[in-house]
């Protein structure tokens, strides 16, 4: 059960970080507003499913997010390209502010009632005495489907080839008659669409509120760094690793205190550093990804699948 929980959460993280990694590896832009597009996906899906139904929203919301991402790339991001990567990062940082405020302006500041569709609202099977929800299985299915189609698109189709060519040799690709800026805009829009899709399926599994972007923002950066900057495969491994790690950590009540007393060392509240020794693994579970980040940087700075070591 814990494995399933961990993997399904990890796959959602992957959907989020896949778009980020894609944009980063193609354009060298770290999209700080990526989590904001995830939030937009959830809110669009909520709005569209209020008007029609969930399945329409499932298709329409990512497209809307992609359009917004494409427009942003075309009219704002491209203009900062000449000022360098710092300016590009800053402009997406500013965008995350503006999106957050606009979302609050349109949908209010508290959570909206974005529900799991009735058809998927049930339990798939029971293991021991806890049941595995259908919707989680659906999430995993969508994530895997996305992974496979992304892979096929990049490796097997003409568009994928052009994208890869534009990435490594932009001038040559341009000379061959391809519109490289348009390819970039498409990649950016595509990456945003992935975030939007993650929002569609994550928004109702968890919660759709203005704080949701900030809640995942930092963690997907960790995934990208730990996986190795710009590596999709690395992002997949890192996401699932983090998902599993967080899930299993919750189940374990280990602490240094227990370990030390097993070794025969007596630790009392007067011992130096007692607050550290008494912390349980389950307590620090959610910050483990950040610890992983630090450890990874010390041990292997280029990340799991990273090739560059800058």
């Amino acid at each position: 059960m814990s494995v399933l929980n961990g993997v399904s959460y990890g796959l959602l993280l992957f959907m989020l970080s896949a778009g980020l990694t894609l944009i980063f590896s193609m354009m060298g832009v770290l999209n700080f507003a990526h989590a904001s597009f995830y939030m937009l996906g959830a809110y669009f899906a909520y709005q569209v499913s209020e008007w029609t139904n969930y399945w329409v929203a499932f298709v329409v919301a990512p497209i809307l997010v992609a359009v917004m991402g494409g427009l942003f790339e075309r009219y704002v991001l491209r203009k900062t390209h000449k000022s360098g990567h710092v300016a590009e990062l800053l402009v997406t940082f500013g965008l995350s502010f503006v999106i957050l405020e606009l979302v609050q302006l349109i949908w209010g500041r508290s959570a909206v009632d974005y529900k799991v569709p009735a058809a998927l609202d049930g339990s798939l099977f029971k293991l021991f005495n806890s049941s595995f929800p259908e919707y989680r299985a659906f999430m995993m299915l969508v994530a895997v489907g996305m992974l496979v189609s992304l892979f096929l698109m990049l490796k097997k189709t003409r568009i994928g080839l052009v994208i890869q060519a534009a990435l490594t040799h932009p001038e040559t690709t341009e000379a061959l008659g391809h519109n490289v800026p348009r390819v970039f805009a498409m990649v950016f829009a595509g990456g945003c669409a992935l975030a939007g899709l993650a929002g569609v399926i994550g928004g109702n599994a968890f919660i759709t509120e203005p704080g949701m972007a900030q809640a995942v923002g930092a963690i997907i950066f960790v995934v990208v760094v730990v996986g190795g900057m710009g590596s999709l495969a690395g992002a997949l491994i890192a996401s699932v690793l983090i998902g599993l790690m967080q899930t299993f950590a919750v189940g374990l009540d280990w602490s240094f205190l227990g370990g030390l007393s097993a070794l025969g060392i007596d630790v009392t509240p007067d011992t130096f550093g007692y607050p550290v020794w008494k912390l349980k693994l389950s307590q620090i579970g959610p910050i483990l990804p950040y610890l992983l980040l630090v450890v990874m940087l010390v041990v292997r700075p280029k990340g799991i699948m990273g090739t560059r070591d800058d």
Partner: peptide, 21 residues
């Protein structure tokens, strides 16, 4: 008796599994 970091947990499923266990 569990304490988790505030506002950091996105997925409570593992906690629920622990309660069930």
């Amino acid at each position: 008796d569990e304490l988790h970091p505030m506002g950091q947990v996105k997925d409570f499923a593992p906690y629920i599994a622990k309660m069930q266990a």
